[in-house]
Amino acid sequence: MKSHTPARDRRDLLKLLVSAPIAATAVAAAPAQAQATVASESKTANYSETDHVRRYYATLRGQ
Rank of each mutant, 00 (worst) to 15 (best):
R10D: 05
A34R: 13
N46L: 13
S3H: 10
L60V: 04
D51Q: 07
Y47M: 13
Q63M: 02
Q63R: 04
D51H: 00
P6C: 03
T25N: 06
M1C: 10
R8T: 03
S3D: 12
L16W: 14
V38N: 07
K43F: 03
Q35P: 00
Y56N: 06
A32S: 04
A23C: 13
Q33L: 12
S40E: 13
S42Y: 07
Y56F: 15
P31T: 00
A23Y: 06
N46S: 15
A58S: 12
L17H: 04
P6H: 07
L14R: 15
A28T: 05
K2G: 09
D9H: 01
S40H: 06
M1V: 09
T25H: 02
M1L: 12
T25P: 03
Q63L: 04
N46H: 12
V38F: 06
A23G: 15
S19H: 09
D9S: 11
R11W: 08
S42C: 06
L60R: 01
Y56A: 04
R61D: 01
K43L: 07
Q63E: 00
Q63H: 13
T44E: 14
V27L: 14
V27I: 04
N46W: 01
H52V: 08
T50L: 00
I22F: 05
A32R: 12
L17T: 00
D51P: 07
A7F: 08
V53G: 11
A39R: 08
P31G: 07
A58E: 14
K15F: 11
T59R: 08
E41A: 10
S3K: 10
S40Q: 11
